[in-house]
Amino acid sequence: MALLGGHFDLIPDPRRDHGKRHALSDIFGLALCAITAGADSFLAIEAFGKARLDWLRRWLPLTHGVPSHDTVRRVFALVDRRHFERSFAAWAQEAFRKTDGRVVAVDGKRLRRARDAGEPMLTVVSAWATEAGAALGQVTTDDGEGEVSAVPRLLALLDLSGCIVTTDAAGCQTDIAKQIVDGGGDYVFGLKGNQAGLREQAERWMMEATLSGDVDAFETSERGHGRVETRRYWSAAVPDEALRRLLWAGLTSVGMVESTRTVGGKTSTEQRYFATSLAVDAETLARSVRGHWGVENGLHWSLDVSFGEDASRTRTDHAAANLAVARRVALTLLRAETTAEGGAPTKRMRCAWDADYLATVLRLE
């Protein structure tokens, strides 16, 4: 099997030749098949391999049989996660057709149990293509590194041309804005206290544009589960003189979203502000903002509920980060397969029961 278009076959093998029995591609292929079919631990990966050995040998040599769970764990710990991350990004961008205006949400997720007591929590920063429902890449924070420092490394792995990159307030940084614009993309940044000056400017520009009537508006409303939520979006241009004073590459407009929610007879209202390189267009702003919110349900929630990521205690060296890559690849493949009904948990069970369906999900046939 040319694992995922052969991209993962290019990863250097860190093991010594002496005593090496299992090919790196066999170990990766086994792990991906097993994780897609419901395995959430190294022991389960070995058990899947033994149960499906004859089927696996249709795609993988497995000359020396199924590697033990200790061997799989050791390899995942040894392989530098940066190699895994680069291969993942190269495969995802080749596998999923890119279209202009695609929203790419960049957000971090902590691996809460993947650490020893007293050690910093590992954070995986992912890029999520909202419309495709596909993870496009990930990077893991280095020791002592914050999430914001990891974002430029993730963006460097991606083709940003024609994309709308969204981040929460933590990613609202001048160097990140420049990197996105230089890469041919646009950005939509949430504004909070870390950019208090820009947020105050955005509030003032929005107020002035509203008073003069130079503002674009869009509205959506949703009802369900005893809740009524109305969202109003406004988009206004940044004045030319302000652009000359500011250091934000490509900054063109600001946006405001007002969410009014009624639950159980109680109504609450929240306002949020955004800085963006997009032209004044409230409907595009709405699509971008909603697209960013989708990363929580589409990626993070699915990883915890369907793959038990938050409960995983794998922590040795690169193992946690590399397993995170494998989960994102599996989730992306499961979401891309549309012939069967159900979400990721149901499809994982079907992959365990039906080897032909597993081959379809993995694009082997």
Score class of each variant (00 low, 15 high):
1 M>N: 12
6 G>Y: 03
12 P>I: 11
14 P>I: 11
22 H>V: 13
27 I>F: 03
28 F>K: 02
40 D>E: 15
47 A>P: 03
51 A>I: 02
73 R>S: 15
76 F>C: 07
77 A>E: 08
84 F>M: 15
90 A>F: 08
94 E>D: 14
106 V>P: 07
111 L>G: 05
117 A>W: 02
118 G>N: 10
119 E>F: 06
121 M>I: 15
123 T>N: 14
134 A>K: 09
136 L>T: 05
137 G>N: 12
137 G>S: 12
138 Q>C: 06
140 T>R: 05
141 T>F: 11
142 D>R: 14
150 A>Q: 03
156 A>S: 15
160 L>S: 07
163 C>S: 15
179 Q>A: 11
182 D>R: 12
186 D>P: 04
190 G>E: 01
192 K>A: 08
195 Q>S: 13
208 E>N: 12
214 D>F: 08
222 E>G: 06
223 R>T: 12
229 E>V: 05
233 Y>K: 01
256 M>W: 02
260 T>Y: 01
263 V>Y: 06
269 T>L: 04
277 S>H: 11
291 G>A: 09
296 E>I: 04
298 G>D: 06
318 H>T: 01
319 A>P: 05
321 A>I: 01
343 G>S: 10
348 R>G: 09
350 R>I: 10
362 L>S: 02
364 L>I: 15
364 L>V: 15
